[in-house]
Computed example of a mutant assay.
Amino acid sequence: MGEAARGTGGRGRLGNILSGLAVAIGFALFLGGFVWGALVYQPYTVPTDSMMPTVRPGDRVLAERIDGGEVRRGDVVIFTDADWSNAPMVKRVVGIGGDTVRCCDQDGRLTVNGKELDEPYVDDVKADGSGRRSGLASDTPFEVTVPQGKLFLLGDRRAASLDSRAHLQDAGQGMVDRSAVTARVDARAWPSPAMLDRPRTYAGLPGGTSSPGPLALQVYAALAGAVLVVAGSAYGPVARRFGRARREPTDVR
């Protein structure tokens, strides 16, 4: 066997080893990303239009499993409270323990501890079917102080949301225990996949806003794994084809 053949064989064995390693790492990343995601996130189908335009009825979202102590203002959370419904609900946290939440100031805006909030996520279309905008953060005026360990929650479509305002006359004044929260929505998965923005609205208040969960990293890991699996699997057929092409005699005239 000539030196060229031995060199070609050595390169082929090395290529096979590397391609096998790429496939193994790819499978590990691909499956690891999915398993990690399944452990951290829960899927949830939005049942109503109370959170439009952030999420719409029938949207499939991915919500990070969290403890109630991790909740921050501005989070879109999934919770279950028997006084509201026996089914899980999705709303936005606008007040936490110690906050005084009021609506509305002279500009029609919500205030938290006297700080006027700019809420770009709010749909303020009137509920009368006219399609006109009310210009108000809420058609229902209110002022509440949130006890420690409690949350005050509103829907983004304020004219169509049954939220903390609908329970103001209850004993708990519409507050929900932090422990009632099971997850925080990070992204829409279907029909239009997108990460949910963390609103800067609450960034200037004590505690700030929450950080995005690891969903993006999980997706990148799965995609990188898929690329490695495809590339590693394609090495063998491609190498054999090029090898045959080099070995075929050239027709010299």
Results as ranks from 00 to 15, higher is better:
residue 2 G to S: 13
residue 151 L to Q: 00
residue 120 P to D: 09
residue 218 Q to G: 13
residue 129 G to A: 11
residue 222 A to N: 03
residue 20 G to L: 11
residue 78 I to Y: 00
residue 187 A to I: 11
residue 162 L to F: 07
residue 47 P to L: 04
residue 162 L to Q: 14
residue 141 P to N: 08
residue 79 F to W: 02
residue 225 G to C: 09
residue 154 L to V: 07
residue 242 F to Q: 12
residue 6 R to S: 15
residue 181 V to C: 10
residue 187 A to R: 01
residue 185 V to F: 01
residue 226 A to G: 13
residue 164 S to D: 04
residue 86 N to C: 02
residue 187 A to D: 01
residue 64 E to S: 06
residue 244 R to A: 13
residue 180 A to K: 00
residue 190 W to H: 09
residue 24 A to M: 13
residue 196 L to R: 04
residue 34 F to N: 11
residue 18 L to N: 08
residue 223 L to E: 12
residue 158 R to P: 04
residue 212 P to I: 01
residue 140 T to S: 14
residue 74 G to L: 01
residue 246 R to K: 12
residue 99 D to P: 02
residue 67 D to Q: 14
residue 189 A to P: 01
residue 103 C to L: 07
residue 120 P to T: 04
residue 228 L to P: 01
residue 247 R to V: 13
residue 18 L to V: 15
residue 121 Y to W: 08
residue 18 L to Q: 07
residue 88 P to F: 00
residue 142 F to N: 06
residue 37 G to I: 02
residue 57 P to L: 04
residue 79 F to K: 00
residue 136 L to N: 03
residue 40 V to L: 10
residue 134 S to A: 13
residue 88 P to A: 05
residue 149 G to P: 02
residue 78 I to N: 00
residue 93 V to G: 03
residue 121 Y to E: 07
residue 89 M to P: 01
residue 226 A to E: 10
residue 84 W to T: 12
residue 75 D to T: 01
residue 230 V to H: 09
residue 229 V to N: 05
residue 1 M to T: 15
residue 109 R to C: 10
residue 165 R to N: 04
residue 43 P to R: 05
residue 242 F to H: 12
